[in-house]
């Protein structure tokens, strides 16, 4: 490599280029003398001058790191002082914002456009994804700015002192709320009722979505699985936590319901010809089709979600009992 500037020139420039006009030139001058002193000492000890300069500079290490130390700037985006607050916010904010964004976008689109549900759901999902990325990015940027603007002496301190009243009001594994139970049970029973009503034939005034000509065994099985789901919610509340047995029953009923529905779906027996039914009922266009993969995806997603959260809560309950 041919270059007109010496190794020292380039090193000193790299260290001091981001330092202010007040300290930069002074640091540069001192650093030059220091490197020269180190080189002299090495040459006196018998090292070749060219090698000596390289050694002296290597010993000082990465110039960016050195520049940070001179400038008193942190070598990280978010340090241990504000990290716990960052984690707290990154848990709370997405949990509130993302469902709102999803529901708001989905309902607005359903009300204003006549695209099919699959593409609307996909659109809402993509929106939630981009909102999530933005949320994470901007929260992180804000915290990084706070971290970088703090005086050096406060850097490892938390933004505000922790107080015992910040603890959760109840340890999670004791937290099977009555409200939560009522919502889950009512939802499960309402679903069972709705499915039963659909299977028995809805008559003139309803919209026939599920196939009323299905074999009675499957009708009873599906309704029963939803009823079990509701009973399970009540059982969990009575026991006070998700036990491994209850979680296993929940996984089994979810898997059973999902497999049964997928099997019926694959045989074209689960749903009626929806475009036809809706067309007759509301005079809508019949020029669309329900996408079987999308329906299958939602069946699997909902069943898996329900099963996994139950297992997760059961595990947390076991761990919670161990710490109690």
């Amino acid at each position: 490599m041919t270059t007109k500037s010496t190794l020292t020139d380039r090193y000193v420039w790299t260290v001091t280029r981001h330092l202010g006009a007040d300290t930069g030139p002074d640091v540069a001058r001192e650093l030059r003398a220091t490197i020269a002193d180190a080189v002299d000492a090495k040459v006196d000890a018998g090292t070749d001058p060219a090698v000596a300069e390289e050694e002296a500079v290597s010993e000082l290490g990465d110039p960016e790191v050195l520049a940070r130390q001179y400038g008193g700037r942190p070598a990280y985006l978010i340090g241990p002082g504000v990290y716990p607050d960052w984690v707290r916010l990154m848990r709370i904010l997405p949990a509130i914002v993302l469902p709102l964004a999803f529901v708001a976008n989905f309902t607005a689109k359903v009300a204003t456009t006549d695209e099919n549900w699959g593409s609307l759901l996909l659109e809402a999902f993509l929106l939630v994804l981009s909102v999530a990325v933005h949320l994470a990015f901007w929260v992180t940027v804000t915290f990084a700015i706070i971290e970088w603007k703090r005086p050096e002496s406060e850097r490892d301190q938390p933004l505000s002192a922790w107080k015992p009243n910040q603890l959760t009001t109840e340890v999670p594994w004791r937290q099977v709320g009555l409200g939560e139970t009522i919502v889950e049970a009512v939802f499960a029973f309402a679903l069972a009722g709705l499915v039963a009503w659909q299977f028995s034939g809805v008559g003139e005034n309803g919209v026939q979505v599920l196939n009323p000509d299905l074999h009675a065994v499957w009708k009873v099985a599906l309704v029963a699985l939803f009823v079990v789901d509701g009973l399970l919610a009540i059982a969990v509340w009575r026991v006070g936590r998700w036990t491994p047995t209850l979680a296993a029953i929940n996984v089994a009923t979810n898997a059973g319901a999902a497999i049964l529905m997928l099997w019926l779906l694959s045989r074209d027996e689960l749903l009626t010809d929806l475009p036809q039914v809706l067309g007759e009922k509301f005079g809508w266009s019949t020029e669309w089709a329900i996408s079987t993969p999308v329906v299958a995806f939602f069946i699997v997603a909902i069943a898996a979600w329900d099963a996994i959260t139950a297992v997760f809560k059961a595990r947390r309950a076991i761990q919670g009992q161990r710490t109690a």
Binding site: E30, A33, A38, L60
Partner: peptide, 20 residues
């Protein structure tokens, strides 16, 4: 000055890196 201090400390058995 900086380098002399570094050497004094090193001679006293208190080795410190220049970049510190």
């Amino acid at each position: 000055y900086g380098y002399a201090l570094l050497e004094t400390l090193a001679d006293a058995g208190f080795a410190v890196d220049g970049n510190t």
